[in-house]
Simulated assay, not measured.
Amino acid sequence: MNIQGKWSLVTGASSGIGEQFAIQLAKQGSHLVLVARSKNKLDDLAAELERSYNIKVEVIAMDLTEASAPRELFQQCQLLKLEIELLVNNAGFATHGMFEQISGQRQHEEIMLNVAAVVNMTHLFLPDMLRRSSGTVINVSSTAGFQPLPYMAVYGATKAFVLSFTDALWWENRDRGVQFFALCPGSTDTDFFTVVGTDEASVGKKATPQQVVETALRSLAKKKIYTIPGSQNYLGAQLSRFVTRKLSLRIVGNMLRPK
């Protein structure tokens, strides 16, 4: 993947894994479209990256939980005449607790961001990549995508969707010049758990966003379909292959049970 002088679009770019994607891609000479709700954070990051790496950065502040947002974002890129070579669907969040006690509106927004936005963004930007026979789509899933998560039921289901969706599109496009790749991190040292509102959702040692993104880009260069950064995370993701479904649910449920 040669992205020097080409445009990459990163959602959820204001912090954590998204911010680190922006930094690592800028180091490779990619121009950037940075997307998140927080314009001030994006502006600060854009200024730093332009100054440090002599690249162009476009900032688009947008809430991707809104149904119309992906198309509005795509149209803005068209107006700016930007050809997106690399799309990183990173934006997402989780909820934690008993399903019926969590705000229905909040869980709806979780589905819109984690699932609908990923599907719609991919559907909008993929045709141009196919016309050029060149492009890459990175979808950020999670180790949560490998088994159901009691007390994080919607989050686990959304990340399972992202992983399945990405695998399927990898197969459809494997001979068409467009690469699909799923990044499946475990617990990572980001604002994720602050947004969730609890640290009980953190399992195992937290990786840094830099470690996660560096692993992702190395795996992508090796033409892998997906990667799980960290050996402990990889083993944990295989749990359901070696124990019964009920036992897997018991183990994960005990880990994530609200205090």
Rank of each mutant, 00 (worst) to 15 (best):
M1V: 15
I3E: 00
L9H: 03
A13C: 12
I17L: 13
E19S: 14
E19V: 09
E19L: 14
A22C: 15
A22I: 00
K41F: 06
D44I: 14
L45T: 01
E48Y: 09
L49C: 10
S52C: 11
S52P: 03
Y53L: 08
K56T: 12
A61I: 04
M62V: 01
F74G: 05
L82D: 04
E83L: 08
I84Y: 04
N89C: 14
G92C: 10
G92I: 14
G92V: 13
A94C: 08
H96K: 10
F99R: 08
E100C: 11
I102S: 12
S103D: 13
Q107T: 06
Q107N: 12
E110W: 13
E110F: 05
M112V: 06
V115H: 09
V119T: 09
H123D: 11
M129Y: 07
L130Q: 10
R131K: 15
S133E: 15
S133G: 11
S142Y: 11
T143L: 09
F146H: 13
P148R: 08
A157D: 01
T158I: 06
K159M: 05
K159E: 06
D167P: 00
W171P: 00
R176S: 11
V178I: 11
A182V: 07
C184N: 12
V195P: 07
V203F: 02
V213R: 01
R218Q: 14
S219W: 10
L220N: 04
L220D: 07
K222C: 07
I228H: 05
I228M: 10
I228Y: 00
N233D: 12
F242N: 07
T244A: 05
R245M: 08
R245Q: 14
S248D: 13
I251W: 01
G253V: 13
G253P: 10
L256N: 02
